[in-house]
């Protein structure tokens, strides 16, 4: 049999081998067994030395054709097998993407802190500073300096925890006003402050009363501050807390440290003013107290009340949280039941 025939026969045999190959590894083995240094085609071509010089180019060409063909078939098969293998791997690696992800534990800000921080941020943006004072105060700063002298009937409105006859747990954050006023240098600009913090009153704890609660007060003192400025500021605050559509109304009231004094109602955020359980059918919900700072408060702090004046307002984050989120028991804020706390993790 001639070399040409041998080559043709080897090609046919190789193609049969390739057809039956089932892995890339087998394909590589076939490649070596035919095309390698000791492969069949190489050994056939060793017979070239016996071929006439005229025949050699013909056989050489034939050999190249067989080699090319064989390589092409090998590569084609290899590619197909690789694809199949990848497909199998993908199938094998498939997971249930609906299984739960790994646990991430994250804590959350207390709902009262969230409310206070929202208010702080609103006022920081308007150039207010945040000033925190002592929770234990002297009777003098807590009462006298905010225009509540001994025997003032309004002292009845706030039953007080005393430590000694002169030292008490602050009943409001107002002593910070007096302490800040007496140190403020008006030549460096107006006083604009927000003071958040814990306050204490003699109350028996129940669903709506707590001996410990929070307050956040604001005060602005400068020349030419008007009650209209107070109204505009409170409108902004009400909208921030309860939504853009809210309106406010001011009603006359009484606080010893402001004159005029007002209580502020916000239009009911549940019914929009139609009347519902939240607003007790009135369409309005009382949310804060405010007023124009009493001249006595300014004078006692050494501020000339004929030149400077301003406003103050105060509100209770506990009450706001109860209203806003429908919390029915104030004690939840201080028992720290995780089933309660974690409900307020939502940011969006």
């Amino acid at each position: 049999m001639g070399i040409e025939e041998q080559l043709t026969g080897v090609l046919a045999k190789a193609v049969t081998d390739i057809d039956s190959a089932e892995s890339v590894k087998e394909i590589e083995a076939i490649r070596v067994s035919y095309l390698g240094k000791k492969g069949e085609i190489t050994s056939i071509l060793k017979g070239m030395k016996d071929v006439s010089p005229q025949q050699r180019p013909v056989i050489g060409k034939k050999a190249n054709e067989v080699r090319d063909e064989l390589t092409a078939v090998l590569n084609q098969k290899k590619e197909r097998l690789e694809k199949e293998a990848l497909q199998k791997q993908l199938e094998a690696e498939t997971i249930d993407v609906t299984l739960p992800g790994r646990q991430v534990k994250k804590g959350q800000t207390h709902v009262l802190t969230q409310i206070m921080e929202d208010i702080e941020d609103l006022f920081l943006g308007m150039g207010y500073q945040i000033i925190e004072g002592n929770e234990v105060e002297s009777d003098y700063y807590n009462f006298e300096r905010v225009n509540l002298p001994q025997n003032h009937p309004a002292r009845d409105m706030q039953d007080t925890f005393y430590i000694t006859p002169d030292v008490l747990l602050r009943t409001h954050t107002s002593p910070i006003q007096a302490r800040t006023l007496e140190n403020h240098d008006f030549s460096k600009g107006p006083l604009k402050m927000i003071s958040p913090g814990k306050v204490y009153r003699r109350d028996t704890d129940d669903a709506t009363h707590s001996h410990q609660f929070h307050q956040i007060e604001g005060m602005v003192i400068d020349e030419n501050i008007t009650m209209a400025d107070l109204k505009g500021t409170l409108e902004l605050l009400a909208k921030k807390m309860f939504g853009e559509e809210r309106e406010i109304r001011l009603r006359p009231s009484y606080f010893p440290f402001t004159e005029p004094s007002v209580e502020v109602d916000v239009s009911c955020f549940k019914c929009g003013g139609e009347g519902c359980n939240v607003c007790k059918k009135t369409g309005w919900i009382e949310i804060l107290g405010a007023g124009m700072t009493h001249p006595n408060v300014l004078e006692m702090s050494g501020v000339d009340s004929s030149k400077y004046g301003g406003f103050a307002f105060g509100l209770g984050p506990d009450r706001i949280a109860m209203l806003k989120y429908g919390v029915d028991d104030i004690r939840h804020f201080y028992l720290n039941d995780q089933r309660f706390l974690t409900q307020f993790k939502r940011k969006g």
């Binding site: 150039g127 207010y128 109204k231």
Partner: peptide, 28 residues
């Protein structure tokens, strides 16, 4: 200040304009 309150309340708080303090800016 007591007189101011009497004027304000009888005039009506709902009639008051709404503005913001126009003070010298201070950093907050």
């Amino acid at each position: 200040a007591d007189l101011l309150e009497e004027v304000a309340r009888i005039y009506g708080y709902d009639q008051l304009p709404s503005t913001l303090p126009r003070s010298e800016s201070v950093p907050g």
